[in-house]
Design a binder for these strands. Structure first.
Lengths: 259, 259
DNA sequence: CGCAACAAAAATGTATCCAATTATTGGCCC
DNA sequence: GGGCCAATAATTGGATACATTTTTGTTGCG
């Protein structure tokens, strides 16, 4: 319960930006925003500075903060960077080796994915469990590499509205099956201590995901496009739930009389 | 002249941390610091938040900011991450291709390095020019790759006191010559549009630099060690000049009566 | 003599107020 | 009629005052 207002505001705003509730290019004015959130300008300003440092907002001296706009090239470039980073993480993990027990756990996660994809076509209800499995798997490999920089950088590449690791394009069954097969192969390469192979597969896995995403956006196959999507269309893409712009601090509850 | 106090304070503090004037592990108390810098706590807090996001400071709720301590493993891990990133940048540049004129410019920079290393032994006075050349060369390749994420991440790996791109270990002549030869080979590979080779050389170039740095620190060959070095010992390592903890805003000059 | 609890002091977090910079609008001149 | 300059309004940045939390030191009791 030792959460500060600043952190709360930061998280809430990040959610709103990532979910597309607050649109790219939009100017964030301090007074209206602080009133809408129910906090003073001080924690809000700190939160805005934090988000600007995270790359979600753009800041200009004396001109305030605007929600950053990401071009398709930006998204593509993010996946390129992420592919080499996750590739290196896989290579490190393969070289270091993973305890047999840990490999079994990861395999069991992948088997969850196998079951979700075993059907002849894609069931929209399966997208959330699959996404969770995907996030867990990728995060586990990053953790295993034990390189704080790589983990941080990968997280930063996911600070793009509608291009995070929580995004699954649940359109083409064959592509999903192939992508999931990559997971199996990476894990097998790691188990075999084959760093070169693990790196190559992981690189291709991530880079293809990026190219596929950009292609889908270009073709208009995604319901609303990157960063412009209102919430609620998660039958094809899923990026988690969204919430209204609610007050962070409802009231000054309990003035706390100590005994 | 439209610089804000926040930016000024941020830059000043970053310099002090990077130069080792403010030591790793040290607690940064807001009131004393703001008084020492001659500003109020508001811009200082923003600056501290910025530096924490950059990774130079560590923040804990209600417990303030401390200068982050980097272990040798952290430094090593940073170089590993940086090696794949710069490797990928070199590969992209090689694939994209570089105008002949640009290649000539880069070559002329490298020739500057050639001349500095042509002597039989290392002259301490040559370290600064060489460092500048090195920074320019690496930055140019990053720019050429035109991937904002990669550039940003590389810059972040250099946010480590005494492990930035401005650090040159001016100890062993043979190692310097070999390292500089890597530069030539990378550029040649890029000119030949050989992405695989450019990537491999650049990776090795950066990774070795990291390993060499860590070895030197372990062996105690560096005058003061990572992050513990007081300023002034730049005969062997050079990280730029340092300055005293001076007031950012000397006084409230000219109350400015407008006509 | 040691541990625990309470109190005091200091530091962080928040809010409000003031100053400085920027953008917008209206008027004036070309 | 259009463009430029000036003035005003709005927004951001900085300072100070206040409340809350944490930490440390001291005292009392076991």
């Amino acid at each position: 319960m030792a959460i500060t207002s600043t952190e709360e505001v930061t998280d809430v705003l990040r959610e709103h930006i990532m979910s597309g509730h607050i649109r790219p290019g939009q100017k964030l004015q301090q007074i209206p925003l602080s009133e809408a959130l129910g906090v003073s300008r001080t924690p809000l300003r700190t939160a805005l500075a934090n988000l600007a440092n995270e790359g979600l907002l753009q800041y200009e001296s004396n001109r305030g903060y605007t929600v950053r706009e990401f071009s398709l090239e930006d998204v593509s470039a993010a996946y390129v960077a992420r592919s080499v980073l996750e590739g290196q993480a896989a290579a490190i993990t393969a070289r270091t080796g993973l305890p047999a027990q840990r490999i079994e756990t990861l395999e069991s996660w992948l088997e969850t994915g196998d079951r979700l994809l075993a059907k002849a076509s894609l069931d929209p209800r399966d997208i959330d469990p699959y996404r969770d499995m995907n996030v867990r798997f990728h995060d586990a490999l990053l953790d295993a590499a034990a390189n704080r920089w790589i983990s941080d950088f990968v997280r930063q590449t996911q600070n793009i509205p509608f291009a995070s690791n929580r995004l699954i394009i649940w359109l083409d069954h064959d592509i999903m099956v192939r992508s999931h097969d990559d997971h199996h192969r990476v894990l097998r390469a790691i188990a075999a201590r084959d760093a070169t192979r693990a790196e190559a597969i992981m690189r291709e896995h991530v880079q293809f995901a990026g190219e596929y995403l950009c292609e889908c956006v270009k073709r208009g196959d995604l319901p609303a496009g990157i960063g412009h999507s209102p919430a609620g269309s998660d039958t094809i893409v899923s990026a988690g739930e969204t919430s209204a712009l609610t007050r962070v601090r409802a009231e000054k509850q309990k003035p706390r009389e100590q005994a």
